[in-house]
């Protein structure tokens, strides 16, 4: 049995999961069960960060992956963000990097600028 806090939403349910049968308890909704299973098999995280922007009101543009990516790719994705620079104007939701590090996820803009 492994105990963990579900991080999918701020409720933070206390989950327990059987590492062999992958049966989860303590989740309030189905997303918690999926989270617990993933944590055992292949942990996933949404990555948030920023990229440089020229011609905007600030020098950094907030971005995020449009869905969770393997936790093991976190630092590789950060390096891709560091290497990236965009030009204003940008709209919230615009794709900044397609299929980032081969994860199938896109990096999207978090705001207009």
């Amino acid at each position: 049995m492994k105990e963990m806090i579900c991080i999918v939403c701020p409720r933070g349910c206390h989950l327990t999961i059987d590492e062999t049968t992958l049966e989860a308890k303590g989740n309030t909704c189905p997303r918690g069960e999926e989270y617990a299973k993933n944590e055992i098999t292949s942990p996933m995280r949404t990555i948030t960060g920023s990229v440089g922007i020229s011609g905007g009101i600030h020098s950094r543009l907030a971005v995020r992956t449009n869905r969770a990516v393997p936790k093991s790719k976190m630092f590789e994705i950060m390096a891709a963000l560091h290497a990236c620079r965009v030009q204003a104007p940008v709209k919230r939701g615009d794709v900044i990097i397609e299929n980032v590090c081969g994860t199938g996820a896109n990096v999207i803009a978090s705001r207009d600028m």
């Binding site: 939403c9 701020p10 948030t48 920023s50 995020r64 919230r92």
Partner: peptide
């Protein structure tokens, strides 16, 4: 919210997980 670029906002209000700037937007 403009500086809270991490995600975890909006699950109650919009039913999806947004970053701070997206929620504000």
């Amino acid at each position: 919210l403009n500086q809270c670029i991490h995600n975890g906002f909006g699950l109650h209000r919009f039913g999806e997980e947004l970053s701070g700037p997206e929620y504000a937007g």
